[in-house]
């Protein structure tokens, strides 16, 4: 396990936002109602912060696999992002790809349990960080 976390690519589509609304129970219309989003001064529907949060959770759980436990996680939302519209029933239009990235910032041990502290972030197609957070994982392989 290196100090850089293997990046994870994500493509947010309007279809993904609808799936997330249903799966998470976030029915704020900013995320699926174009006219409502415009009435709030936005150019279109925006991606749920909590969806990007779960991308970052996946970034960490993919990275640690079966060898680690996600012990703490936190994040904040810094800017809004806009999903790709759909081109066909299943394919999105060309557009942004989001990259989830992270790195290890500290290693420490308490009572023979080994922890890694990490910084994680979502970068949009322009390279802007729109969600950022922290995670602490336990390395099972080093449990004694």
């Amino acid at each position: 396990m290196g100090d850089e976390i293997s990046p994870l690519a994500k493509v947010a589509t309007t279809q993904m936002l609808v799936r997330w609304a249903g799966a998470s129970g976030d029915f704020v219309p900013l995320h699926y109602d174009e006219a409502f989003a415009r009435s709030q001064g936005l150019p279109g529907v925006i991606i749920h912060g909590a969806l990007q949060r779960q991308w970052l959770v996946q970034l960490v759980t993919d990275w640690i696999g079966g060898e680690g436990i996600l012990r703490k996680f936190s994040c904040q939302y810094r800017a809004v992002d806009f999903p790709r519209p759909m081109k066909t029933l299943t394919e999105p239009q060309q557009g942004d790809t989001w990259w989830c990235k992270g790195r290890v910032t500290a290693k420490h041990a308490e009572n023979a349990t080994h922890y890694l502290d990490c910084e994680v972030r979502v970068e949009n197609g322009k390279g802007e960080v729109t969600t950022s957070g922290k995670a602490t994982v336990i390395l099972l392989s080093r449990l004694s």
């Binding site: 749920h48 936190s74 904040q76």
Partner: peptide, 12 residues
């Protein structure tokens, strides 16, 4: 009447 998500902190 507006709401924005200000972020989350979890311990698992």
């Amino acid at each position: 009447s507006r709401i924005l998500d200000g972020g989350i902190e979890w311990e698992f």
